[in-house]
Design a protein around this nucleic acid. Sequence first.
RNA 1: GCUCCCUUCGUCUAGUGGCCUAGGACGCUGGCCUCUCACGCCGGUAACAGGGGUUCGAAUCCCCUAGGGAGCGCCA
Length: 480
Amino acid sequence: MRIVSGSRPTMTVRTRFAPSPTGYLHIGGARTALFSWLYARKHGGQFILRIEDTDLERSTEESVNAILEGMTWLGLEYDEGPFYQTKRFDRYAVIIEQLIDTGHAYKCYCSKERLEKLREEQMANKEKPRYDGHCRDGATPPSADAPYVIRFRNPQEGEVVVDDLIRGRVVFQNTELDDLIIARTDGTPTYNLTVVVDDADMDITHVIRGDDHLNNTPRQINILRALGATPPSYSHVPMILGADGKRLSKRHGAVSVMQYREEGYLPEALLNYLARLGWSHGDQEIFSIDEMIELFDVKDVNKSASSFNPDKLLWLSQHYIKESDPQHVARHLSYHLGRLNIDPAPAPELSDVVKAQRERAKTLVEMAANSTFFYQDFEHYDDKAAQKNLTAATRPALAQLRERFTALPDWLPEVIHQAVIDTAEALGEKLGKVAQPLRVAMSGGTVSPPIDVTVHLIGRERTLARLDKALAYIDSTVSA
RNA sequence: GCUCCCUUCGUCUAGUGGCCUAGGACGCUGGCCUCUCACGCCGGUAACAGGGGUUCGAAUCCCCUAGGGAGCGCCA
């Protein structure tokens, strides 16, 4: 017998993301979710969110919330769900009963001790550890109330062919598969059963998931067939490695999606990065969400694992900060300013600050940190900056700037710019000799947007006050 | 150990027998621009894991080797 998985072209595409709530939404899961979401969107189908919480020991509500929060931040909205498997136990029980009735499943009374011993022996004999079918052909209960699990009676002959959309044709011999447990001693169903029942019940047409599930696929197809259901199409996406080529873990830095928000990334930057990790469309690097939906195809996903490259993400981050609508960036930036206890409500307009800063920040965290002086007076000058720029030699320039600024008819960048140039010319100095001291007086340090833009944004009143402060500072250090 | 999967610059990748003395991007790097920091622009660096075939011709097809990974749970 040959069992082949295939797609059902006549049905509308329905994909799902099915995380188990045992932690936050991580990068790998987010990419799988993204691919599933893109595929559904591209084909005008539905994307379903299903929480696989059958492991009562490890599943937590906090994890569920963290996953939901991550999905929301990324903008991966689902059309149905979230469905919780723990709320479907009755349904699984019916299916398990059905499998027993049709002879596709049986009660197994083997003790954990026996199984453990069996496994050890097989390992010692260099065999693949697997269930030996002890109870497969009718076991007599050790006692009337003996505990038992339910096992799926896997075919012992033939092969299962998985026509994976990413890996191509993968063939498994049924002789390699053993009779897996589908219901625990306490009656609760296990993963391989619930995933199959749900995918069938929810009419999932395309299963896109991590390739750690590839080896489970033939078992799931066998259960599906026993149920008389048509297997969905499968796509197993390779895993994401850390920058060192090792499995991604906490020590590689951020693995949680929400941590990227904390670190100042725009969701579209992360999405673009994740999309390009394993998937490509020619030489194109930048994809808007709409372009991804239009161009994505699971067939174009690579077969090999890829390493996470923080530098490239940073590049994309800067790209989106630079190219996105300033209002949009401002909304995300205000979150980070809030974390610095800065209220961007008073002047200057935050989107104007974004326009001034967007070419010199790779993340919103960086932009927020470099923008504090627009909203708050700084306490101290940077030592080196002050030593070099706030001196007796630069005092005349600052004094003259104060005079000219006071007299300006309009407070506009062009006019301010001209005033700085005029000051330099009047003193016979190069522009930098005037602009840089002014910059330090305005920002407390040596880095800021173009000086005219900076001064303009700070506003006349505060500009004059900061010039006064700088002049006083010079006087105090010179006389000291 | 067994089964399954993977292998192009440091990294992400293009490439589906001739367009490849292998293209793009990130990074690194030389230069230009410049009021700081940046942005931008121009240039450079660097790869088909190894070995056998098939073919007039192979990064592309086949085989072997090596390396990496996943699975083998009353986890998902």
